[in-house]
Design a protein around this nucleic acid. Structure first.
Length: 802
RNA sequence: GCUGGUGUGGCGGAAUGGCAGACGCAUCAGACUCAAAAUCUGACGAGUUCACGCUCGUGCGGGUUCAAGUCCCGCCACCAGCACCA
């Protein structure tokens, strides 16, 4: 009788063995086939790990461990994405330097991860706040700057009128400042921008070459939002100026009954003197300035706007005079900041026209009364009331109209993207300094590469200044510099980079984390890149994933990296919710700390449960009872020692089951179906217990299959039973396809699609024979005329009778 | 409002168009125990029947098919993200 399963003893023992043996150190032997598995590195927050973190880490740990058993040289690294707002705010509140806060949090996180038995190669740990790391983040920025992809632009920031600081979107709650509850307005500030839009097409095209889960591809495509349409100039009555609009529906130009410009549109200020309702316009603009783009969207149900009194436009295709409105549903940041409105065929325009009593002219006929209901179907409609377009379908009309516009010189075909350039500066302390100086004579000048890393200065207070500058701006010693260009006095850029910067290239650094000459050696990059499998949260699909692909593509163009896409495969995991089905959060009181689960049930139980909890890509609710069930499963595995019999082979009656299980587990581990892989192993041990016996060979296979999920207990049993070496060094079991199929199968016999009986047949029995047998079994129920007989081999017989 | 996703027993969830509910939890019954816990064995979608059975059943309404949780059309609810994208 073996001892009872003491998870604490077992887990501590094997974690120490793995550390001592450097069990999961990545080899520098580039002759072996490589496998690079990557999970998004965490932000080391003060709360420590929560139970959502281990889900993706365990999933790819399973893949990494399996790959090692299959003979690959595996890179499965971990690090810290440690710059950013929460740490800075914590530092301000508690008067501890963010560097210290980060160090403490990292220690805590690392201990927690270690206690879960992950096979990370800790020798390759990285930290984005380490100057040796951010030296290369700055180096990439300089490359971007020199390539003309970094530029300065006036951009609005959230400005708290009371705290007098810029706020992140996250810090603005319901339009007021999170800290003080005062009003937040949008204030324009000169910001560093990165021209991600330059790569918009490449970022879309690249998606065809990678293996991402479909919804991630769709999100990226929609976010980039390529659209083809036309820019058209509308004359302003009695003025030189034209109002340029962008439209995807130039076929509907004859249906334009008014125009709308964004409240920020420069044309308004230009003709201020001639506008008769300036006060009304000003009031509306002030109101709009208080809203974020998102709030504008949210409040969109009730359209607002003001008619510009004193300025009208001329529809270029029919010469009609039309009114111009300002409304905040038109954004300055997309297109030209002005639109033509076709209420008959655009939902927002229709709503707006109804509210302001504007005419609705049908130009695409499709059977609906456009006075009652908007008609937006482009597939079946026919052009009407549209002069030379009448009778055409929408697609032809678009082409014809573009020809016409270009011929007359009033418009051109134009591709547009939703994607905007990346606002790259933050008026904050805890980020990478931007390695630029500003010289009165030479303008913005990059510092020399030899001066990198440009280290963050030690400051007394991290509090943003009341004029909206970064706290670093108060450090005159640091700020005053000499211009690398003319040698004259210059001032350093005091804004810092956003948190996204460090995470946009970290996967490159893991391949060669201590290199001082380059962000990584050519050899390391050529061997390891691209990442073979990258898993992360859906919430990072549009920002982090897109930003890092952008940087990678840029570095590829700069010949720094050897491949155009950083990640060959991308999957994403679902969130772990509290036991009440809500998002885990302190305020809801439903947070589960993994430390408690590790202490009470063990890391192996936690790992097993997190994989068994449900479909990997869907969210799942936490259940302590579910944890217990997984613990029970491991106990049952433990107690298999007691019923183990000699024999290296599989027993005859379980041979098929063994081969089926190896096949299923192997397949499921590769396809995000960890829950059914574990279910298959549970079903297998249920078979052992039914027989009250497990052969040595069967046990060995089970331990190997289970090892990636529950590495400690399997290693302990492996040793206890007397198998050689370590499980983690063993070879992944193989199966024989021929032995996964039962020779006798039970099939269902149906009449008109309803199962009436079952029948045992040989798997290769001919159709006629099977149907004859089936008819015998249900003879008493065959009372009508048989019209059809269907046999799906090995599955089902269906007799259709009338 | 837009985009993406999800709806299956008491619960978490399984199901290449082919016997819905694998596996687990909870519950109930039995075994073991002085007893409880643990463990082991069995039952476990709903209605109906003494029973063999029969009928219904995968958010709702239609459709395709010999056969639909799965495919198509139209809805509803919930979750997540968001930059009203012209």
């Amino acid at each position: 009788m073996a001892e009872v399963y003491n998870h604490r003893e077992v887990e501590e023992k094997w974690q120490k063995v793995w550390d001592d043996e450097k069990a999961f150190k990545t080899s520098d032997d580039y002759s072996k086939p490589k496998y690079y598995a990557l999970v998004e590195f965490p932000y080391p927050s003060g709360q420590g790990l929560h139970v959502g973190h281990p889900r993706p880490y365990t999933a790819l740990d399973i893949v990494a461990r399996k790959r090692r058993m299959q003979g690959y040289n595996v890179l499965y690294p971990m690090g810290w994405d440690a710059f950013g707002l929460p740490t800075e705010n914590y530092a301000i509140k508690n008067h501890i330097h963010p560097k210290i806060v980060t160090e403490n949090n990292v220690v805590r996180f690392k201990n927690q991860l270690h206690s879960l038995g992950y096979s990370f190669d800790w020798d390759r740990e990285i930290n984005t706040t380490d100057p040796n790391y951010y030296k290369w983040t700055q180096w990439i920025f300089l490359k971007l700057f020199k390539a003309g992809l970094a530029y300065k632009s006036e951009m609005p920031i959230n400005w708290c009128t009371s705290c007098k600081v810029g706020l992140a979107n996250e810090e603005v709650v319901n339009g007021v400042c999170e800290r003080c509850g005062s009003e937040v307005v949008r204030k324009v500030k000169s910001q560093w921008m990165l021209k991600i839009t330059e790569y918009a097409d490449k970022l879309i095209q690249g998606l065809d070459t990678v293996d991402y889960v479909e919804k991630v591809k769709v999100s990226q495509k929609n976010w980039i939002g390529k659209s083809t349409g036309a820019e058209v100039d509308f004359s302003i009555k009695d003025k030189e100026d034209k109002l340029r609009i962008y439209t995807t529906r130039c076929d509907t130009l004859f249906g334009v009954t008014y125009m709308v410009v964004s409240p920020e549109h420069p044309i308004i200020d230009k003709y201020q003197a001639e506008l008769k309702n300036w006060d009304e316009i000003t009031a509306y603009r002030e109101q709009a300035a208080r809203k974020s783009d998102f709030e504008r969207a949210e409040l969109a149900k009730d359209k607002t706007g003001v008619k510009i009194d004193g300025m009208t436009a001329i529809n270029p295709v029919n010469g009609k005079e039309i009114p111009i409105f300002i409304s905040d549903y038109v954004l300055m940041s997309y297109g030209t900041g002005a639109i033509m409105a076709v209420p008959a065929h655009d939902e927002r325009d229709w709503d707006f026209a109804k509210k302001f009593n504007l005419p609705i002219i049908e130009v695409v006929a499709g059977g609906k009364n456009v006075q009652e209901e908007v008609y937006t179907d482009v597939a079946t409609g026919t052009l009407v009331n549209s002069g030379f377009l009448d009778g055409m379908n929408v697609a032809d009309a678009k082409k014809k109209m573009i020809e016409f516009l270009e011929e007359k010189g009033i418009g051109t075909a134009k591709t547009n993207f939703k994607l905007r350039d990346w606002v790259f500066s933050r008026q904050r302390y805890w980020g990478e300094p931007i390695p630029i100086v500003h010289c009165e004579k030479c303008g913005y000048v990059p510092i020399d590469e030899s001066e990198l890393p440009l280290e963050l200065p030690e400051v007394e207070s991290y509090m943003p200044t009341d004029n909206g500058e970064s706290p670093i701006a108060l450090m005159t010693d640091w700020v005053n510099a000499t211009c690398p260009c003319c040698g004259g006095p210059a001032k350093r850029e005091t804004d810092t980079m956003p948190q996204w910067a460090g995470s946009s290239w970290y996967f490159l650094r893991y391949t060669d984390p201590t290199n001082t000459e380059a962000l990584a050696s050519k050899e390391a990059l050529e061997y390891w890149m691209p990442v073979d499998w990258y898993n992360g949260g859906m919430e990072h699909t549009t920002l982090h994933l897109l930003y890092s692909r952008f940087w990678h593509k840029f570095l590829y163009d700069q010949k720094v990296v050897p491949c155009p896409e950083p990640y060959a495969k991308r999957t994403s995991h679902g969130m772990i919710l509290g036991s009440n089905g809500e998002k885990m959060s302190k305020s809801r009181g439903n947070v589960v700390n993994p430390d408690d689960i590790v202490r009470d049930y063990g890391a192996d139980t936690l790992r097993t449960y997190e994989m068994f909890i449900g479909a990997f890509d869907l969210s799942a609710s936490w259940s302590e009872d579910g944890v217990k069930g997984c613990r029970r499963f491991l106990e049952r595995v433990w107690k298999l020692q007691d019923i183990m019999t000699d024999g290296d082979d599989y027993s005859k009656d379980l041979e098929i089951k063994m081969h089926q299980t190896i096949k299923k587990v192997s397949y499921d581990f590769e396809n995000l179906k960890y829950n059914t892989a574990i279910a298959a192993m549970m079903a297998l041990i249920n078979e052992f217990y039914k027989k009250n016996a497990v052969t040595k060979g069967e046990f060995k296979t089970l331990l190997t299959l289970l090892n990636p999920v529950a590495p400690h207990i399997t290693e302990e049993l492996w040793q206890a039973v007397g198998f050689e070496g370590r499980v983690y060094q063993t070879t992944w079991p193989e199966y024989d396809e021929a032995k996964t199929v039962e020779s006798v199968v039970e099939i269902a016999v149906q009449i008109n699609g309803k199962t009436k009986a079952t029948l045992n047949i040989g798997k290769d029995d001919p159709k006629d024979e099977v149907i004859a047998k089936a008819k015998e079994v249900i003879a008493d129920k065959l009372t009508g005329t048989i019209v059809k007989e269907i046999y799906v081999p090995g599955r089902i017989v269906n007799i259709v009778q009338k």
